[in-house]
Design a binder for these strands. Sequence first.
DNA 1: CAGTGGTCTAGACCACAGT
DNA 2: CTGTGGTCTAGACCACTGC
Lengths: 253, 253
Amino acid sequence: MTSATSPRAAPTLHERITGDIESRILSGEWPPGARIPFEHELSARYGCSRMTVNKALTELARSGLIERRRKVGSFVTHSPARSALLEIPEIKAEVDALGEPYRYEILSRRRRRPARADARLLEGHEGAEVLDLTVRHWAGERPFCLEERLINLGASPEAAAESFAELPPGPWLLRRAPWTNAEHRIRARGADPRRAGLLKVAPGSPLLTVERRTWSGRTPVTYVQITYPGDRQELVARFSPGQRGATPGSTAA
Amino acid sequence: MTSATSPRAAPTLHERITGDIESRILSGEWPPGARIPFEHELSARYGCSRMTVNKALTELARSGLIERRRKVGSFVTHSPARSALLEIPEIKAEVDALGEPYRYEILSRRRRRPARADARLLEGHEGAEVLDLTVRHWAGERPFCLEERLINLGASPEAAAESFAELPPGPWLLRRAPWTNAEHRIRARGADPRRAGLLKVAPGSPLLTVERRTWSGRTPVTYVQITYPGDRQELVARFSPGQRGATPGSTAA
DNA sequence: CAGTGGTCTAGACCACAGT
DNA sequence: CTGTGGTCTAGACCACTGC
C-alpha cells in the first residue's frame, strides 16, 4: 500500500515489501486465503532484518489486506476492508469550497433542563442543563444548511455564556471540549414545513441529514443535526487500504 | 484512548506511550500546536529504546493527532482530521439484521459498449465493454434497496459469463476483483417514477443514494448506485481518534 | 553546522497455537 | 514440544531543515 502520498519518491525498503505483497494479492497471484511467506522467509528473500519485514506485514494487516495468526502464519484476507473514511468538513470550509461567501446566524438559543427526549440524544447525560441552538448557515444568498444542536452544559459550562458571534458552535466546541468518540447517522428525509421554510425549499423535498453525537470519554458533549437540501449536497468518503490515503475530498454542491 | 479492541489486555509499551500522549492531547494539557517531547526525551522518560517511542509517535502521526517535522519536532495538530469510519455493510447482512428474510432479483442485465456518460462513472476506463445490471434486494415482502451497477469487463472479464444466481454482484466482485480504492458519494434525492415504482414508494419521496466507484490500482472495477427508501435506512459511522478501532462491521460490496 | 525524525539491523525474549 | 508472530533493544546511518 503504502501510501497514497504523492509521486513516489524513493520507496523505503519496508514500503517496497508492502507494495510487492500488495500487488501480488491484488493481481490474484496470492488469492484470498493464500499463505504469505513467513517473516523469516521474507527477510531472507529481501536480505533485510525481520523487523523490516514485520513493519511491512503489520501495515498490511492493519489495512486489512492480510490476517496474521501466531504459529500459523499470515494469510490474504477473504473479504477485505469494509469501511471507508468519511470526512467531516467544517461548514465554512464547504461553503468556501463553493466559492460562495459564508455567513451564519443564530436563529434560536435556549438554555433549559433536558427533556426526556434529549436523554436519548445525549446518551450518558447526567442531568445538567443543555443549551439548545438553531443555526442557519448561508452560502451567498442561499441557505446552505441548518444546524440544530444540543450542548451538554455539564461538559462545557462556558458555553452558557458564549454568544457564538465570533465562531459558530461547532468550531467553538472543538476548541473547548475536544471529543474522543463520535457517532454519525446519515439519512434522507422529506422536508417538514419548518425546515423547508428555513432552507427555502419546497416542503417534502429531499433533505440529507447528518446527525452527530460526540463524547469526551463517556461524557456526552453535543448532539447536532445538520440538514442539507438533498439536491445540493453530497458527502464523499474515500477508502484505500492504506489509511493514509484519507483524501481531503469532501463535499460539493 | 487508543485502541478500540476489546477489554484491554495488557497494553504493550508503545501502546501505553501512545495512550499517554493521546490523553494529554485530548485533555487539553497539550493544546494544538504544543510541541511533544523529542523521541530521545520520551525514550529516556519511559526507559525504552527510541524505536519503541518512534512506533508510538508514528502511530499518532498516522491517525492525525500529531504532525512531525524533521529537525523541528512533533506537534499537536491544529485541526485534527475530522473523519469517521463509515461502515459499508453487505446488503444481505443489513436485511438479516432486520430479522427479515433476504432475497434479490436481477431485474436487468445488458452487456454493451460504454456510453459516453459511463466514462465519467468508470473513471480511467479504457474502452472495454461494461456489464449493466439492475438488482432489487428484498427484505421480506418489501423492496429494501435498488442496486444499479456497471462492471468494467476489462477488469473482470469473467463477469460476462456469470449469472449472479448464487451470489449478488457485489459480493461476487469482491471475491474476483478486490479493490484498492473506493470513493463513495452519499446524497438524498426525490424518487423518480421508475425508482419509485421499483421500490414501491411514492414518487418524490426521499431516497438515500450511495454511489460507489472502486478501482483496482488505476483500473476501474465497478460503479454502483444503491438507493434506499430514505425513511427506512440510515448509514452509521463511528469515529475515535485512534483509527485502530476499524469496527469489524459487516461486509462490503 | 547540529539536531531532528526516518529507517534499518542483528540480535533477543515472550506468548501463543498447533503438534 | 516447536515455530510463529509480537515486541523490544541498543546501537547505526541518513536526509532533511533550520540556524
